[in-house]
């Protein structure tokens, strides 16, 4: 379709409310946050004028009580913990979700639709509420411990709350649908005749699994992993409510800096790091899908 100048102008007019809103209330705030990360912290909250890279220095070095700089692994540690927990959540969802996606892909269209609907349904309920439900389940004398005690199976407590495990369970629960859907999507396109042919040739089920099913659903697996990994990294609710505040993750660290610790520039700097990690993850995904497309063309 040839696009005339008049039409282009109209297109921009129609686009402008949405673009301006997102630009003004989302992009500009990000720029302000970036600027804040180079300013000085007001000890009682907010920022003071003056350019400094202190917030970024603080990420790697600590000023000792007598002001000498020394390398510190604290924040790298927190970043690492966030990445590790996000990875655990990703792998956990993959293990839990992959067979289910495969199972769904093998049903007839009607059943498929229903099952997919059931997978997504909990996802659309409040994050806080879903996390709270896990408090009911995991807490001392909660839904798991009570019946165990009643039948005399348990004496004392399992101590499941306030642990890394509890955080991981919460994260997996929260983001699981994001793993199942893309894997399903890539399997749905998968030609099951290939599997049939493979079974005829190789015979072994697990070989079929390893050499046919997994490679063919790789795009879905990659997408699912990114979709679970990215939000897990910035999670705030699960570490706060299920982790008992003992183990900071990036999300809670950022929140802390803007709340009770009142070090805005530092919080802004960590938020920038988080964004950087997210961008890297997205770029990796884009590259892998580009490579795939190139291979398909070839």
């Amino acid at each position: 379709m040839a696009v005339g100048a008049e039409q282009t102008r109209r297109t921009w007019w129609l686009l402008s409310p949405a673009l301006l809103t997102v630009g003004f209330f989302m992009v500009l705030p990000m720029v302000i946050l970036l600027v804040f990360s180079f300013m000085e912290a007001d000890p009682y909250g907010g920022v003071d004028p003056g350019f400094t890279v202190e917030a970024y220095v603080q990420l790697l070095f600590e000023r000792d009580f007598d002001d000498t700089l020394a390398y510190t692994g604290i924040y790298l540690g927190i970043i690492w913990r966030s990445i590790a927990l996000a990875l655990v959540a990703t792998v956990g969802s993959l293990i839990l979700g992959f067979p289910v996606a495969y199972y769904i892909a093998r049903q007839n269209t009607r059943t498929q639709n229903l099952l997919l609907f059931l997978v997504t349904l909990p996802f659309w309920t409040n994050l806080l509420i879903r996390t709270y439900a896990w408090i009911l389940i995991l807490s001392t004398d909660g839904v798991i411990e009570q019946p165990l005690k009643a039948i005399g199976f348990l004496d004392g407590t399992l101590d499941m709350m306030y642990s890394n495990g509890a955080i991981a369970i919460g994260l997996i629960y929260t983001y699981l649908p994001l793993m199942v859907l893309p894997i399903y999507a890539s399997m749905e396109k998968l030609d099951f005749r290939l599997i049939e042919a493979a079974s005829d040739l190789y015979a072994g089920r697990y070989r079929v699994f390893r050499e046919v099913i997994v490679p063919l659903s790789t795009p879905g697996i990659v997408a699912g992993c990114i979709l679970v990994f990215v939000p897990s990294l910035g999670a705030f609710v699960a570490p706060d409510l299920l982790g008992g505040g003992r183990k900071l993750m990036l999300g809670s660290l950022i929140h802390l800096q803007f709340a009770s610790s009142r070090n805005w520039p530092f919080g802004a700097a960590i938020a920038m790091c988080l964004l950087a990690i997210v961008m890297i993850a997205l770029m990796l995904q884009a590259r892998s899908s580009a490579r795939r497309r190139a291979m398909e063309v070839a």
Binding site: G234, G251, A271
Partner: peptide, 23 residues
């Protein structure tokens, strides 16, 4: 334009939250 409109989907919510607060 499409990218800009989808931006709120990509940025982690905590980052959006503190950016909006600062703004």
């Amino acid at each position: 334009s499409l990218g800009l409109i989808s931006l709120p989907l990509i940025v982690p919510e905590i980052a959006t939250a503190v950016a909006t607060l600062s703004f």
